[in-house]
Write a protein that binds this DNA or RNA. Structure first.
Length: 271
DNA sequence: ATGGGCACCTGGCTGC
DNA sequence: TGCAGCCAGGTGCCCA
């Protein structure tokens, strides 16, 4: 499910309920996630207070007194804050029980999500160390995109989804950002002009900002920590709109396959 | 170094 | 109703 806006919405949703609380227990009902949850992990985090929440790319970070929990929601993961004693539902793999009595439930049908714990600087964790700058960093500019795209032969859509180059953008927002920038997803990254890359940098930020403001996009199973779906779906211009008229020009939106994923674009507005 | 394809999973929908 | 096939918000890893 979750791209940057959904992870950020989740972070904001849980923040007031977890910061300052002590972890009484971490219940691991299903350790077989993308990477197995280590057996000793619950014992290492129990008793620690949550100091703050953070996000890096699509990773949600819970900073504890002695270390940091790194949670990834994968394709189908979501977090819910629930009162104590609410029985786990199907695919509720993890439950973080807090001293407030509330519990944070991690649900993930496909089990592509993951949980790690480190007592080192999380920035040097292998999963985070090689990530590109955040799209909201001052360094994420057309100039930056220009620099990383020279002599890249991949389609620009693939480039947007490569987390070593651009972070936080997944299949929905890649199509949406390219639409806003007026660039076809199939264009070779290294052939894009400076003005196009300026537009693209701006479009990436604008799409992500708008989606965060709307609480993310719910297509199927995504819900925020309060259980409510995101409202950005109504503001999608191309994603999952194949055959429907472009909101600007009325031409039918097209769907194509790139790699194993679907891309959507307006053949008139995007060149 | 770069790019492409695969793997990891479950579940919902479509069409025969 | 059953079942095969396809598709789905991600991404690390292996190979050419």
């Amino acid at each position: 499910m979750p791209e940057l806006p959904e992870v950020e919405t989740t972070r904001r949703g849980i923040d007031p309920y977890v910061v300052g609380r002590r972890i009484e227990a971490l219940v691991v009902r299903e350790p077989r996630l993308r990477w197995p949850v280590p057996e000793e992990l619950p014992g290492r985090v129990a008793g620690q207070r949550v100091l703050r929440t953070a996000r890096r790319a699509k990773y949600l970070l819970l900073e504890l007194e002695r270390g940091t929990l790194l949670l990834h929601l994968g394709m189908s993961g979501s977090l819910r804050m629930l009162p104590a004693g609410v029985p786990p539902r199907r695919h509720d793999h993890l439950e973080l029980q807090l001293d407030s009595g509330a519990s944070l439930h991690f649900n993930d049908p496909r089990r592509f999500g993951s949980l790690h714990y480190t007592e080192a600087d999380p920035a040097v964790h292998p999963l985070l160390a090689r990530l590109a700058p955040e799209p909201f960093d001052p360094g994420f500019t057309g100039e930056y995109l220009w620099r990383i795209t020279r002599r890249r032969r991949v389609p620009v859509k693939s480039l947007l989804m490569n987390s070593r180059l651009v972070v936080g953008v997944g299949n929905i927002y890649a199509s949406e950002a390219l639409y806003r920038a007026g660039i076809r997803p199939t264009r070779t990254a290294g052939r894009l002009t400076r003005p196009e890359l300026e537009r693209l940098a701006h479009a990436v930020r604008a799409v992500l900002t708008g989606a965060v403001r709307a609480g993310g996009t719910t297509l199927r199973d995504y819900v925020g920590a309060d259980g409510r779906p995101g409202a950005f779906r109504r503001k999608l211009f191309v994603y999952e709109r194949a055959g429907e008229p472009c909101r600007h020009c009325g031409v039918r939106i097209r769907r194509i396959a790139q790699g194993r994923r679907s891309s959507y674009f307006c053949p008139n507005c995007q060149r």
